[in-house]
Design a binder for these strands. Structure first.
Lengths: 344, 344
DNA sequence: GAAGGTAATGTAAGCGCTTACATTTTATCA
DNA sequence: TGATAAAATGTAAGCGCTTACATTACCTTC
């Protein structure tokens, strides 16, 4: 020992160094690349580390190493099960690689999202995960200027240049719409979340129109009701469709939550699903299978998406190259809420 | 201008200072305590900041200021809606005060939780939010040694000394159990999540026993089935109760997810709820009101808890004092799944 | 056994910011 | 108007770590 007065404060690298009788450089090497240090030296240093209960100072490390081992994510909200699920997998994978998650949410508000992105960058996020492509070009410019690698999730669009790990929202909904049309439905309504600065919702709506066109029908026939995310808003939207377009035989919702709302409203109104009207969702979250009738929907591999996104970002940090976009497959879950169109 | 060669790299405080023709100290003051700087100087500096697109370097700031403005939280999992909801509110409130959330999850695993706590501290979390009291004393010692203020959420137990913002799990369940007993139930079963290192679940189970005792009944009569969190596991547990204790007239579950599982199993088995058997939940998440029959449960103010927890932690960082524990009220939501006990 | 190479360690220069303290400018008032 | 206080700004010393480069120790090899 060679101590001074009180051992009050937190030990630093230098304390460890002097205890182990080596230079700070050696201690640093011991901690960061142990094989570049002799065996007995290493043991001596590690012993000192334990004895002192040393742990590196984060700020100093970040400053000197120029990275924080922290990855940021900005999602619309954790209260939406799809994001909670994907993010959980994302965080788990990050943790497995020694990275930590910095999290912020935008409440589906573009301006708030921008603020949050800036905040995460200011907090030293080494890379960023963002949901969907839609965003002011200015933000992307900012990110590039700061050199923060960014990955898009939840969307995959071959027409876009940015790297994404996601699925083709439009194609997925188009596939489901084909099935709906195949059941004889022509008067289709769509309940959607706001499509402004939300390419996922917009793509899904487009998918329905695509299928109408394919079937030789007029895409303008599709009644669109835009409403915020929620069960209650889904109920209201259903009522609105019934009131304004009583001929409707199928309602396609851009997510399961709105669809469950529709189902509830149908029951309350005494409308039978699927005998009187069919309802479909999107996402395949837990309540989809729990609903009564069980909801026909599009299954999205949220967990896999989160996990892969994390892997991608970790790769970027290592190789400094963000690879190709990756499209994940979706799958139609045919359940009870979709049936043949009723006769007019 | 007074520049050298390429304006490639990220601008620093010094760049701003020389552009604005002031010292770095003044620039720093402009950014951190603007009122300590003259008006025109301030304007000149801010102009330079914008011109250069300057943003502070996180590591340097953290190192010099000895804080990161980052608050950590370790939760069991985001996939559980109660945590997603509470955390969402927590993060929103943090954001409102310029703090950022560092998030990790433990998957209900004590050892993983410890790792995550250490990781967040290593990433410079200024303070920590933890779920429940149960935890190795060693971890608390570590946190104290490192001087990281810690707040407990989701639990409130006057017998514990640590500061918490939560609710009294035991008392809440006791109250619900009283209502169950008042409906004539005596053969009560309890489906619970693992109670080891989970004082919330344990408290809820205890609450049932408390009520039994109050009613002059033997608390040992309560059949306990422990199973991991999930709808599927809830279903299984329900079957197990039916098989082993067919006299049971009420099943109290420690959370809504297990209860919904029980409800499903009941339907599959042709057991009517509540005519044949009553089922109760805990938490009051969305599916509780969506279930058929609607689930009688205990409403927990998750969002308020998250918000208050954030406020507390922010206070600590300012005043260096973590105040009194705060108990939040819960409320029994009487719905359809609880009814009178069937006659033997 | 001298030359040349490799492995282990040390030296010290930053990284970009905050802040205590020193200095200069401006305002106030007898 | 000069003394004095208050406000504005500057100077410079760290904060604790990483890492390029320099140095030393230790093997090989012919």
């Amino acid at each position: 020992m060679s101590q001074n007065e009180v051992e009050k404060s937190v030990p630093t690298l230098a304390d460890v160094a002097s205890l182990a009788n080596v230079s700070t450089a050696t201690v640093s090497r011991c901690l960061n690349s142990p094989d570049r240090v002799g065996k007995d030296t290493r043991e001596r240093v590690m012993k000192a580390v334990n004895e002192l209960g040393y742990a590196p100072n984060f700020g100093a490390q970040a400053l000197a190493a120029r990275q924080t081992n922290t990855i940021g994510a900005v999602i619309p909200t954790m209260e939406n099960a799809v994001f909670a699920r994907g993010l959980q997998a994302f965080q788990e994978e990050l943790g497995r690689h020694g990275k930590t998650l910095l999290l912020a949410s935008s409440a589906y508000d573009a301006e708030l999202e921008e603020q949050q992105i800036r905040a995460l960058v200011a907090r030293g996020a080494d890379a960023l995960l963002l949901i969907g492509y839609d965003r002011e070009p200015e933000i992307y410019r900012f990110l590039e200027k700061r050199g923060v690698p960014t990955l898009i999730a939840w969307s995959f669009n071959p027409a876009e240049t940015r790297t994404a790990v996601g699925f083709d929202n439009r194609a997925a909904m188009r596939a489901l719409a084909r099935d709906v049309i195949a059941q004889g439905h022509r008067n289709i309504a769509c309940i959607t979340a706001p499509t402004r600065s939300n390419d996922r919702a917009r793509g899904r709506v487009e998918g329905i129109r695509d299928a109408k066109i394919e079937a030789g029908q007029d895409p303008a026939e599709v009644m669109i009701v835009e409403t915020p995310y929620g069960i209650g808003t889904g109920e209201e939207a259903f009522r609105q469709v019934m009131a304004q377009a009583p001929d409707t035989t199928a309602i396609m919702c851009v997510n399961d939550v709105l669809a469950v709302g529709a189902l509830r409203a149908a029951r309350a109104l005494g409308v039978r699903v699927p005998e009187d009207i069919s309802v479909t969702g999107f996402d395949d979250i837990e309540i989809a299978a729990l609903a009564d009738p069980e909801l026909t929907t599009v299954h999205v591999p949220h967990r896999e998406m989160g996990r892969r996104a994390a892997q991608r970002l970790i790769e970027v940090l290592q190789n400094n190259v963000i690879g190709q976009s990756k499209e994940l497959p979706t799958e139609i879950k045919m359940r009870q809420s979709l049936g043949p169109a009723r006769k007019a």
